[in-house]
Each structure stands twice: as C-alpha cells, then as structure tokens.
C-alpha cells in the first residue's frame, strides 16, 4: 500500500508547527513509526504533515534536584544510548531499549509515542508510572497536563488539533530508588500484551504501581503502591490481586490475570534489583 497524496512541511520551531496545525487538516510527524504505516495502509489520510524533526527546542533538557524536563523530540535510541544525563536510575534507558526494534527506535520519538497513545506503548505507561507531567503548546501558549489526564483512551489524548507536545517532566529518582518494568511480549519488539511497572523512591516518598496495555489508559494501583511504600514488595504483592480485581474489572478474568502477572513480576524485579 502506498499513502494517499499529502503535503509535507518541515517546521523550524514549535510556534511554526502550531501555526501550521491551526490552519487545519494537518498532523504532526514526530518520527512516523506509527503514522507512516497507518498512512501507507490508508487508515490515516492527513492532507498535510508538519515534520518537527528539526525543531531544536524539542531537544531541550533541563533538570533540577527534583524534576527533569525532557524535550519530546528525543528518539528512543538516543534515550537508550544515554544521550542525556540519567536521572531515572537507568529506568528510561532500559525502557527505551525494549521498544520495538532498533530501526524503529532510531526514528521514533518520546513525544510521538505519547501523542499516538497506543495503550501498549512503553512511554505511555512509563510516564504515568512516574507520575510525570506533559507540557503542551498551542496558539495561546503552553499548558501543563498531568500524565494521568493526558491519555483519554486508546489512541486519544488531551491534545487538541492545534497543539504540539513539547516536553515531559519526570521526577528525578534518588540513589535509593528502585524500579521494576515487566512486559509480556510473544516476541522481541512486539507491542506488549501486558505491562507492569513499579517505582519506589524512599528519598522523595514516591511510590507508584501501574498495570498497562489494558486496552485504554493505564491503570494505576494506588493502594498497592501505598503498601509498597509502607511495607515493601511482599506487602504490595499481598494486596495486588484484590486491587487489580477492582480496578481492572473491565478486563476478562484471563486478561486481568496476565496484568497481575506483569505487575507482580515488576514488583519482584524491583525487589531483586
């Protein structure tokens, strides 16, 4: 399949991209590893693409003791390779390493993946698991959206048609922090069937547990996380099935069981790590 005809523009700045989006019938090209195949299958038929590959400000990195702000234009491969100083105790590099194949990672971007909002995508689940904040720019300037409010459902986000995802703010994990990330894939590089994430930072008190690849937005498990903070992995594991049953009630029992396995293994990996 070949894509239907479309126009292509390359933006030099976020403002330029936003202006082009505001003219309508335009979509952002931010690596194209999902949009490209969709267009070739003619499932997506944008009249115009605005490519943000060359927008320098999407590659800004700013960090303080508590928060790191990472531009949305970084590729998975750059994150995997440690192109910016690590603030996540190796978590982002490891998650990036597990995304698809290197050829996809060379082009696909953090922001592109988040804006595409595939429920099984790694960044979608990682950013929520870390309780991050997304920075979005539209015609009237920038706004910040909590990660749990950004994804509305499968392939839908809080972005409006004239907004560009600019950056992601993530908490700096301290030296004592532990994390576990487990995904169930039939083969290397496939989208996950189930994702489990657990993060615990005794220094900041951050404790998060998440079940991902759940057909819609990721589901956080705050009670399990609280147990994790208070009583450690064993206590968290004891509560996990009960909370999962309540919060993943929309899934069939066998589907729910796979998410529980993924979360449990993430917590166990954290305990071992």
């Amino acid at each position: 399949m070949k894509a239907a005809a479309f126009d292509y523009r390359s933006a030099g700045s976020v403002a330029e991209a936003v202006a082009l989006l505001a003219e309508g019938e335009t979509r952002v090209l931010a690596g194209g590893q999902s949009l490209g195949p969709s267009m070739n299958l003619r499932l997506a038929r944008p009249q115009r693409l605005v490519d943000v590959k060359r927008v320098a400000e999407l590659r800004d990195v700013a960090a303080d003791d508590a928060v790191c702000r990472l531009g949305a234009g970084w590729t998975h491969a750059e994150i995997e390779d440690g192109a910016m100083a690590d603030f996540s105790q190796g978590m982002l590099a490891q998650v990036a390493h597990g995304i698809a194949y290197r050829a996809v990672r060379n082009r696909g971007t953090l922001g592109g993946s988040l804006a595409h909002a595939d429920p099984a995508a790694d960044w979608v689940n990682t950013v929520v698991a870390l309780g991050g904040t997304l920075v979005v720019q539209g015609p009237s300037g920038q706004r910040r959206v909590a990660s749990e409010d950004f994804m509305l459902g499968a392939f839908t986000t809080a972005l409006s048609g004239d907004e560009v995802l600019v950056a992601v703010e993530l908490p700096r994990l301290g030296a004592q922090a532990r994390w576990g990330y487990h995904k169930l894939c039939r083969k290397t590089g496939e989208f996950a069937k189930a994702i489990g994430v657990a993060v615990l930072d005794p220094g900041s008190g951050l404790a998060r547990v998440l079940a991902g690849a759940v057909e819609g937005k990721p589901v956080t498990l705050p009670q399990t996380a609280e147990r994790l903070r208070e009583g450690g992995p064993a206590a968290a594991l004891a509560l996990l099935p009960e909370e999962a049953e309540a919060r993943l009630a929309h899934l069939a029992p066998n589907e729910r069981a796979l998410r529980v396995v993924a979360v449990r293994r993430a917590i166990e990996a954290m305990a071992e790590g």
Partner: peptide, 13 residues
Amino acid sequence: STLVDYLLPGPAE
C-alpha cells in the same frame, strides 16, 4: 493482515 498480527519468529526467538 499485517506483520503486527502475523508473528514471524525473529533471531531472538
């Protein structure tokens, strides 16, 4: 109808 749904074993498998 795509290789997302039709799984072929790769080197890692």
